[in-house]
Simulated assay, not measured.
Amino acid sequence: FYMSVPDELCEAARIDGMSEYRIWAQIMLPLSKPALSTLTIFTFVNTWNDFLGPLLYLTRMELKTIQIGLRMFISQYSSEYGLIMAASVVALIPVVIVFLVLQKFFVQGVATAGLKG
């Protein structure tokens, strides 16, 4: 994303006397909020829904994640579908909250992705 930002913005800021950190903080960072929010949403969802990693390295029952807990409602001969659906809704709530918080930046990035100049 940073490579797509025009160099003229940074050059104009240098001419105005801004330091490199100030250029990043006041020009580059606000322009990159849509890209960073998209990255945050995708990384959070991927980490939150990870099943195999916690299954391999967590040994104590108190440390198990929600996704592993969902798997515990499925036995060899039956499944508790009501409990699975209820726990799925509970597991979905943090993902929806993160998306709703970052939705403004996400939509802004999608809307400005096709604009040139």
Rank of each mutant, 00 (worst) to 15 (best):
F1M: 13
F1G: 14
Y2E: 14
M3L: 14
S4L: 13
V5L: 10
D7S: 12
D7Q: 12
E8I: 03
L9S: 01
C10Y: 07
E11N: 09
A13P: 04
D16V: 02
D16R: 00
G17N: 03
G17S: 04
M18E: 08
S19H: 06
E20H: 11
R22E: 13
I23E: 00
W24L: 09
W24P: 04
A25M: 11
Q26D: 11
Q26F: 03
Q26M: 10
Q26N: 10
I27S: 01
M28R: 05
L29N: 07
L29I: 06
P30V: 03
L31Y: 02
P34L: 01
A35V: 04
A35G: 12
A35C: 06
S37M: 14
S37G: 09
S37I: 10
T38Y: 02
I41W: 02
T43R: 07
T43G: 08
T43H: 05
T43I: 08
F44Q: 00
V45Y: 01
V45P: 02
V45Q: 03
V45A: 06
N46Y: 12
N46T: 12
T47P: 00
W48Y: 03
W48P: 00
N49D: 12
D50C: 06
F51M: 00
L52S: 07
L52P: 05
G53L: 12
L56G: 08
Y57S: 06
R60W: 02
M61I: 11
E62V: 09
E62I: 09
L63D: 14
L63Q: 13
L63N: 15
K64L: 03
K64Q: 07
K64C: 01
K64R: 10
K64M: 04
T65R: 06
T65A: 11
T65K: 12
I66R: 08
I66H: 08
Q67S: 13
I68A: 06
I68W: 07
G69C: 11
L70H: 09
L70W: 09
F73M: 10
S75P: 13
S75W: 12
Q76E: 15
Y77D: 13
Y77F: 15
S78W: 05
E80R: 11
E80W: 08
G82W: 08
G82M: 05
G82C: 05
G82Q: 06
L83H: 11
L83A: 15
I84W: 02
M85Q: 04
A86I: 14
S88L: 12
V89R: 14
V90Y: 05
L92H: 07
P94D: 03
P94A: 04
V95D: 01
V95C: 14
V95G: 02
V95P: 01
V96R: 03
V96N: 04
V96I: 15
I97Q: 11
V98G: 01
V98F: 02
V98N: 01
F99K: 00
F99A: 01
L100F: 12
V101E: 12
Q103G: 09
F105N: 13
F106H: 04
V107D: 08
Q108L: 09
G109T: 06
G109A: 09
V110K: 03
A111E: 13
A111I: 10
A113C: 07
K116H: 02
